[in-house]
């Protein structure tokens, strides 16, 4: 069966068999792109009901409810985010994939970004694409056809393309001497401080039926009011959580402190509850692993990167 996997900057095609597992397909993808920091990533597909779903690596690909088309379509995406890109990401390819994915999320308004930060990020993305600004090469209008700013920023501030270009160009010139790879890292170092960066939002309710957001991210769980995804009202670091479970629509978070009361919330969509739990487990596992000594493999990767 023909399969197409799109990464942020490549399109790969494979032929798989009925016995091919998600893990085997995943391993072919990471081998092809040269990625070793695989723990952040997964394969997404659209199921027959139209929902975006993560491929289960332990199961056969064709036994999962992938929308029937030729070839079968998958997207290779980051599922988990580092707590700090500067300290954690080792390979250039990892930084590049994160840079492209995060940039797309910001430009599509999936992650809110205020105008000044948007222009700053745009200047780094221009440095990452073009390298140093030179007057002879980068003549007036050099950014006209580039997708550089979130749609919301373009709509709220009625500047012309030239006016936006002028602002971005000033900072592009300032980045002179910065390697393209370093510009991608600088982009991520700024983007990771955005309130919505790396947060997975889910609809939940409290006991009296108030609709709220549950945010699951690298540091823990947060609860937001429905009209404000930026300001968490309640937070639970992973270090304080002993266990999370659900039964039907009721979730229970048990604290490590056994004297403290359990925390209960309600997630109205059963289909989503397994996904919430898996994201919690994955983020928790990475949180704990980060606080242990580097594995031999990671030590080797870091040594190679230094060389």
């Amino acid at each position: 069966v023909n399969v197409r996997v799109t990464t942020m900057d490549a399109e790969l095609e494979f032929a798989i068999q009925s016995v091919t597992t998600g893990k085997q397909l995943f391993e072919q993808v990471v081998k092809t792109v040269g990625l070793r920091e695989v723990w952040y990533f997964g394969l997404q597909y659209v199921d027959n009901k139209g929902y975006l779903t993560w491929l289960k690596l332990e199961k056969k690909v064709l036994s999962q409810d992938v929308r029937r088309e030729t070839p079968l379509q998958f997207m290779f995406r980051a599922k988990y985010f580092p707590e700090d890109v500067d300290n954690e990401l080792i390979q250039d390819i990892t930084r590049k994939l994160f840079f492209l994915q995060v940039k797309d999320e910001i430009l599509s308004d999936n992650v809110y970004c205020p105008p000044e930060t948007a222009v700053l990020l745009a200047s780094y993305s221009v440095q990452a694409k073009y390298g140093d600004h030179t007057k002879e090469v980068h003549k007036s209008g050099y950014l006209t056809s580039e997708r550089l700013l979130p749609q919301r920023v373009l709509e709220q501030h009625k500047l012309s393309k030239d006016q936006w270009e002028d602002r971005i160009q000033v900072w592009h010139e300032e980045h002179s001497g910065m390697l393209k790879e370093d510009a991608m890292l600088e982009y991520l170092k700024i983007a990771q401080d955005l309130e919505m960066y790396g947060v997975n939002y889910f609809d939940i309710k409290n006991k009296k039926g108030t609709e709220l957001w549950l945010g699951v991210d690298a540091l823990g769980l947060n609860i937001y009011e429905k009209d404000d995804k930026l300001t968490p009202k309640i937070g639970f670091p992973w270090s304080e959580i002993r266990n999370i479970s659900f039964n039907d629509k009721k979730f229970v978070i048990k604290p490590i402190d056994k004297k403290a009361p359990d925390f209960v919330f309600y997630a109205p969509r059963l289909r989503i509850n397994k996904r919430i739990l898996l994201l919690c487990m994955g983020n928790h596992e990475l949180y704990m692993q980060r606080r242990k000594p580097d594995t031999i493999e990671v030590q080797q990767m870091k040594a190679q990167a230094r060389e």
Partner: peptide, 30 residues
Amino acid sequence: QAKERAHQKRSNKKAPPMDWSKRSEVFSNL
């Protein structure tokens, strides 16, 4: 300066500190 202003947003990602009892209380009042 623009980078510094952007960096200050990091503290917005943390909820106010409170114990588990207070978290349940605040949650039920939302």
